[in-house]
Structure formats: structure tokens, C-alpha cells
């Protein structure tokens, strides 16, 4: 749980970064269902979110 400063504008520990990833995952999924699902299926957004989450947890 080491505090560190990555690209996020605040100091975070692992738990914070997991939390941010989950929050973004939910937000992306909901917005995707609202606006983008006619053009691309939902698993695309899931994939995107997971990649984004990975990136945040590693580098945030």
C-alpha cells in the first residue's frame, strides 16, 4: 500500500487506484449503454475499462 505519485493528480495507494478503476468502470459501462451500444457491443467497453483499470493500478 505504498503511497506514490503517478500520472494521477493525487497521491494514491493501491486501494485508491483500485477504487478509481472500479468507479471508472461503472461510469464507462453506464455511458456506453446510454450512447454507444447501438454501434458497439457492451464487451468492448468492458475490455476498454479493464485495460484502463490495469493502467491506472500500475502507473497511477
Amino acid at each position: 500500500m505504498a503511497q506514490k505519485t503517478g500520472f494521477l493528480p493525487i497521491k494514491t495507494n493501491t486501494f485508491d487506484r483500485i477504487f478509481i478503476s472500479v468507479v471508472l468502470f461503472v461510469a464507462i459501462s453506464l455511458l456506453w449503454m446510454r450512447f454507444l451500444e447501438p454501434f458497439a457491443p457492451l464487451w468492448v467497453s468492458t475490455l476498454l475499462s479493464v485495460v484502463l483499470g490495469q493502467w491506472i493500478i500500475r502507473k497511477g
Binding site: M33, E37, L42
Partner: peptide, 10 residues
């Protein structure tokens, strides 16, 4: 699945 949420955003 997420059907409830799918309905909710509309």
C-alpha cells in the same frame, strides 16, 4: 445481467 441498468440509463 445488466439489463436493469440498461433500462435505467434510458
Amino acid at each position: 445481467g445488466v439489463n436493469n441498468f440498461r433500462a435505467l440509463v434510458f
